[in-house]
Design a protein around this nucleic acid. Structure first.
Length: 373
DNA sequence: AACAACCACAACCGCGAGTTA
DNA sequence: ATAACTCGCGGTTGTGGTTGT
């Protein structure tokens, strides 16, 4: 090689700027199938005109299933302030103490909110008050170490402080939930259509921040990695039925930032969806083949099921299939925009057992929609 | 209504560290 | 030993949205 640093990619050959939903899906699909062992090679393999670095960033900061969306809670902000005091601008270190938050996100929140807020506070308070501020803004601050920082993320829930061992036990409880999931997915009629009747909310809402030693921290991260698919939200996209824009997908928790997938997306895009649907189904078949009395690796199995569940739900969201409010697992309703174009009452629900394709398949999008349904 | 200023945050860039051949 | 390569981190920029005039 020549002297100097080799560029990470040929900038003329790669696409830059904001990611499109189709690109996101391609990336998600590829990583779900193949993982991300080599970021540099990934874009080519995934059929993306992006540099590996860009893919990595997109995945880590946005698409990764365990990324928590939405605003930072007061507790999280306080934690960041405290951690920043200890670590300085070591954003990745701070992020490792805040489950579901990325270093980039924390960095942004610090630069845009917390830094300013702190400087305003400091300037407005006397030096005597400053020491008071430090002790009051941080709960349980008898130790200056951040290793044992804790708080509850969800305001509505009581603070839960657990040790690593207890955390593992809690994760085991999640496995119980997963067994429920397994029993549901074993029914092929229901497997590919509606999922939120699985009470994932219990998992999602029981947000815990664990008090752990550095060793435990590492352990916890591994544990979290294994279980993350089960703790996932449903990815960054969701269908907003109240949205008056036709055929639009929205980012979860981002009602003001609409992302649209036009229904005339290219054939490759829809093929991608269909391909992944097939692989998803084959996963379920594998699961069914495991005898009930043999659970070789619960965690692995849970991850697999979790992946399947998440994917299935993501597909539902992508295609705008939503479950009824009562979360009846056998019935689906269509979002208004699709229902309208299909000439169906939006209130109509569909019995999955008796579901037939409509006669008016308006375009490829709908053909695929009904193919999947 | 139009424009400017500001804000938030996703994405990019360059560097250092670790790994591999 | 070292050059080449890859990844991850922290700083910075660009862009779209919001607010104020």
């Amino acid at each position: 090689m020549g002297k100097g640093r080799a560029p990470c990619c040929d900038k003329n050959q790669v696409k830059r700027g904001p990611w499109s939903p189709a690109e996101d899906l391609k990336l998600i699909a590829f990583i779900q199938k193949n993982g991300h062992e080599n970021w540099r090679a990934l874009p080519k393999q995934a059929g993306l005109l992006r540099c590996g670095k860009s893919c990595r960033l997109r995945w880590i900061n946005y698409l990764r299933p365990d990324v928590k969306r939405g605003n930072f809670t007061k507790e999280e902000e306080e934690a960041i302030i405290k951690l920043h005091k200890d670590f300085g601008n070591k954003w990745s270190k701070i992020a490792s103490c805040l489950p579901g938050r990325t270093d980039n996100e924390i960095k942004n929140v610090w630069n845009t909110h917390l830094k300013k807020r702190l400087s305003v506070k400091k300037s407005s308070e006397s030096s005597a008050d400053e020491s008071k501020l430090e002790s009051s803004s941080i709960t349980s601050s008898s130790s200056s170490s951040s290793e044992s920082f804790f708080s509850n993320i969800n305001d509505e829930q009581p603070t839960q402080l657990v040790t690593m061992n207890e955390k593992i036990e809690l994760d085991s409880e999640k496995k119980v939930s997963n067994e429920i999931i397994i029993s549901i997915t074993e029914n092929p009629k229901e497997s590919s259509t509606s999922f939120s009747f699985v009470d994932e909310s219990n998992i999602l809402n029981s947000s815990l921040i664990v008090a752990f030693t550095p060793e435990q921290q590492q352990q916890q991260q591994q544990q979290q990695q294994l279980c993350s698919p089960l703790l996932t939200s449903l990815g960054p996209y969701d269908v907003n039925n109240n949205n008056s824009n036709n055929n639009a997908l929205q980012e979860v928790d981002k009602p003001n930032n609409l992302i649209e997938i036009p229904w005339d997306s290219d054939d490759d895009f829809w093929k991608l969806i269909a391909d992944n649907f097939e692989s998803m189904q084959s996963n379920e078949i594998q699961l069914e083949e495991v005898p009930a009395n043999q659970t070789p690796n619960l965690v692995e199995e849970s991850v697999q099921v979790g992946e399947t569940m998440k994917w299935s739900h993501e597909f539902d969201n992508e295609f705008g299939i939503v479950e009824t409010k009562e979360c009846n697992k056998d019935q689906l309703s269509l979002p208004k925009n699709y229902a309208g174009e299909l000439g169906v009452d939006p209130q109509t629900t569909f019995d999955l057992d008796a579901m037939e394709r409509p006669e008016s398949e308006l375009d490829l999008g709908y053909i695929q929609l009904w193919l999947l349904a």
